[in-house]
């Protein structure tokens, strides 16, 4: 790993200042960034740790739904979101392993936008708002393909706000080695319709399965998607699963998520 200057600000304002340094990169839980740096695939000159900023921590109900500070670890979300948004808590409790969940954060996951990460599915299916040090970004506008987001140079996430659906579930099928999502589906039923977001499957990163959303909005039952087919054209094909297999998983897991939705 290349060496770097380590900075740990204690306020958002200080973090904004630190991030304005040439070559600066934010560090949250580091559960993806550190392995990447060990492989020398990332080599920041200045690393700005966001884990010492109290304003970026915590889970609470507020305007627009459930507010989660960007530097809140998965384990905390799993515990503290349970009463408000059980599907989201369950998702957080299934990321990585216990030790990873104690360090990894929602902001880090959403900023990285790994095509097999869990949180992007929740953000997109919930129609959440990504709040940064400089603006608010709707989920639809935020995700722009794998590892690509609307974040600008030096911009960092401070909070994610989740509207609470009437019922929801996240069903994840593990890639057997990494335990990231080989494919996973988040189904969220709101008063004005159902949203279905899929992660792990597409070459374009997290996406909404709109045909299923229409069918489920009309009839929120697993059988409602029985007649649909998922095109495999844009699906990821790798040694863990072919495109056709992933397309199958999208449908199977969507059905299971509908059945499991609470």
């Amino acid at each position: 790993m290349h060496n770097f200057e380590f900075v740990k600000p204690s306020s958002i304002a200080d973090a904004v200042a630190a991030m304005s340094t040439e070559g600066a990169q934010p560090l949250s839980g580091g559960q993806t960034l550190l392995p990447t740096m060990k492989q020398r695939l990332a080599a920041p000159e200045v690393l700005v740790s966001l884990t010492g900023i109290a304003e970026l921590q915590g889970v609470c109900m507020g305007e627009g739904g459930l507010h989660i500070g960007a530097a809140t670890p998965h384990a905390v979300v799993a515990r503290e979101a349970l009463a408000h948004y059980p599907a989201l808590a369950s998702l957080a409790g299934g990321i990585g392993d216990p030790a990873v969940r104690n360090r990894g954060t929602i902001g880090g996951s959403v900023a990285n936008n790994d095509p097999a990460a869990c949180y992007p599915a929740a953000v997109l299916a919930s129609g959440a708002t990504v709040v940064t040090d400089r603006r608010r970004i709707a989920a639809e506008d935020y995700f722009q393909g794998m590892f690509t987001t609307a974040l600008e140079e030096g911009e960092f996430i401070t909070q994610v706000i989740f509207p609470i659906p009437q019922a929801a579930a996240y069903v994840k099928f593990n890639q057997p080695a990494s335990r990231f999502a080989l494919t996973a589906v988040f189904v969220a039923k709101f008063a004005d319709g159902v949203r279905v977001a899929v992660t792990g499957a597409s070459n374009n990163g997290v996406f909404r399965w709109e045909e299923a959303e229409a069918a489920l909005s009309a009839d929120f039952a697993a059988g409602a998607i029985a007649g649909l087919t998922v095109p495999s054209d844009d699906m990821i094909s790798d040694l863990h699963g072919s495109a056709a297999y992933r397309a199958n998983l999208v449908k199977v897991l969507t059905g299971r998520a509908v059945t499991a939705a609470r």
Partner: peptide, 20 residues
């Protein structure tokens, strides 16, 4: 795995300075 402030973490994926 070690405990930092009572929580299990992977000490290969944490910078020493970050847990000063």
């Amino acid at each position: 795995v070690v405990h930092v402030d009572g929580r299990a973490v992977k000490s290969c994926t944490v910078f020493a300075m970050d847990v000063e």
